[in-house]
Write a protein that binds this DNA or RNA. Structure first.
Lengths: 371, 371
DNA sequence: TTGTATGCGTTATCAT
DNA sequence: ATGATAACGCATACAA
């Protein structure tokens, strides 16, 4: 059977409490006692039983990260960043894949597995503003992305509108007049698609370019395949295009594929920019310009907020915050921004910031009633 | 405070044991009793305390998957597949990133975090045959990849030699005579690089092509950047090349980038094939031919073996198995294998299999001593 | 500075 | 079919 603190205590000739103290780095222990305990631990190969410790402390040291799927490079890189940031802070991450389905996303918020971890960092894709109630939970929750605003939780999001506007303006600054958008979600009022489309339209307006609906390419799922299809459709329809803003890099790489299939030169005939700045972007042919939404900063901030919330559990809840990292437009070959031999160039920066979104939960007015 | 079984029992007017029975689906309960308990659970919003259950049952329902990093598409897709397979079997996966460092890989095998999960699925990259001792552990372990053979653990690996040989032969069958290899590890005797290089050499021999060392491109890390560099070096050196076998897809995509930068047409002037068949391969320009090593089957098999081992903990250990899934050569544009409009074509299949590698641990001879 | 005793919320062993 | 009760291994209040 596994060796317990008891065994260690016995072997070291001390009480179980002393072993516990040593294991947990309690400072007031005689050097010699500590010594004895430590060698007993080594001799016996003792390891703390996490389940017992978790039961006792009511903490697991785990946090859940829920994303649609790891096969999508953006989420894989986000997960990498979150795991690394959590690791630095001494926390362990458990990843849950939702496939962007309502059912799985709902399950993540309140399902069985929920109770294994101390908190949830959640990037929803199916749930939206109508489901705000589901996000009113009593455990530490950090929301990622642009599906849900105003939930009683910390929120880390992107500079979507400003960055999309900057990307569009950048294409216009290159002299492009027929700037297509790939990845639109018709009629949708919330989410990344709507926000980035808004930025695109603002950019067009500011550049004095007309808005032509024929230049809007729909793509429900943001995969390479759907990007390729949307781009092909537009080209097959004979729409005149000299630039493309794809709402994420997967779409952009798909679009690039379609442009190539149509023997259209990028960037000479059509300039192309994506969004997310995934690792792929650097190595596509030609290298893809993109919007860097500050992925590492998002991950680090999300973990920081989560750890802070967990630490403050039970206290009066601090106000919820909404954090937006800086974003940057990265110019590469697909927009002809780089000189031969140059890898990339930052052509614009959009500043983010932190905002206090809501007061503590339960709302202040309720607490005043109590007073 | 959180509601416990006790609260539920009180409310339902039954004993705590009965609540436990209901929660765990024990069959012999009167329908009415079950009913009462279930509504008490709903009313109170009761959830099982996993830490308590884990302590009691000595099981966590978690398994660790240790990979170098999720930013590498192959491992992201592997993680996706493992998580999904585990999910289907009712298990939860905790991912650990090792950065392919010896220190982190050692830590994974015996570190603090080890004790949170019931078993480890481990894809080592830094540790090798010299570290076999580290892999002799007393918890359920499934090894992935080709760094370590002969450890007392189940092992799921790829058809490296056969698949690499088939890929090389395929390039030769297209009439290519100067087939370069990108991603070699000079002097290394073990690991994917060595095995795939062996397959490449066997392929050359079988095709009657000479082996020219100038056609071997080194790349320590298999990233897009190193692939691009190795390819560039070779081209800058003026080596004559009409085909490239890259030891993984990241290298291949990097090489593709370099070929493009050198204004070399793929596949007309140089045919290119990768290894892993990551999702990217389908959407590069041109679409990348690749070796599909059977990723989903690897993931499913690894989880099956793991669950089986965990279930048999305490029993006499069954013999360790080595499982090799079928692999396939997928022809796409980069080898000119597809007709216009066609996406891909399976041009060869290498059969895998299952092999019993070692007898139970402790070794049979030890047990005979006991008898 | 260290020891004793209690309980965290479950499951498992007996009973009945 | 259900109940009483003893672990599971650790952390911690309280003593000493």
């Amino acid at each position: 059977m596994a060796v317990t603190m008891h065994d260690v205590a016995q072997r070291a000739g001390v009480s179980i409490k002393t072993v516990s103290n040593v294991v947990n780095g309690y400072p007031y222990i005689r050097a010699e006692t500590r010594q004895r305990v430590e060698s007993a631990i080594d001799d016996l190969g003792y390891r703390v039983n996490m389940s017992a410790r978790n039961l006792r402390t009511r903490r697991t040291g785990l946090i859940t990260l829920a994303v649609p799927e790891l096969s999508l490079p953006y989420f894989a890189e986000l997960a990498d960043a979150v795991i690394s940031a959590a690791d630095d802070a001494g926390w362990t991450v458990l990843i849950e894949q939702t496939s962007a389905s309502r059912e799985r996303e709902t399950e993540v918020l309140s399902g069985r597995r929920r109770h294994l971890t101390d908190g949830l960092i959640f990037s929803p894709l199916a749930l939206g503003p109508d489901d705000l109630g589901l996000f009113t939970v009593e455990y530490p929750l950090v929301i990622l992305g642009e599906r849900v605003f105003g939930a009683p939780a910390d929120h880390v999001t992107m500079n979507n509108v400003a960055a999309a506007k900057a990307a569009t303006l950048h294409l216009a600054s290159l002299g492009r007049r027929r700037i297509a958008l790939i990845g639109a979600h018709a009629g949708e009022q919330v989410g990344s698609a709507a926000l980035r489309t808004t930025g695109y339209l603002e950019g067009l307006a500011e550049a004095g370019l007309p808005h032509d609906p024929a230049l809007i390419g729909e793509a429900g799922l943001w995969h390479r395949s759907t990007g390729a299809e949307a781009m092909s459709r537009m080209l097959d329809d004979g729409v005149e295009v000299d630039a493309v803003f794809a709402l994420n890099d997967a779409l952009a790489l798909g679009a690039l594929h379609a442009l190539h299939a149509h023997r259209i030169d990028v960037p000479r005939e059509v300039a192309l920019i994506g969004f997310d700045d995934v690792d792929d972007a650097k190595y596509s042919v030609p290298a893809l310009s993109s919007v860097d939404p500050g992925r590492d900063q998002i991950a680090r901030t999300a973990v920081d907020l989560m750890v802070e919330r967990i630490g403050a559990a039970g206290d009066d809840q601090a106000p919820f915050r909404r954090v937006v990292p800086d974003s940057r437009i990265i110019g590469r070959e697909s927009t002809g921004d780089v000189a031969p031999g140059e890898r990339e160039r930052v052509v614009a920066v959009q500043e983010g910031g932190t905002e206090v979104v809501a007061s503590a939960w339960p709302p202040a007015r309720d607490r005043q009633n109590v007073t």
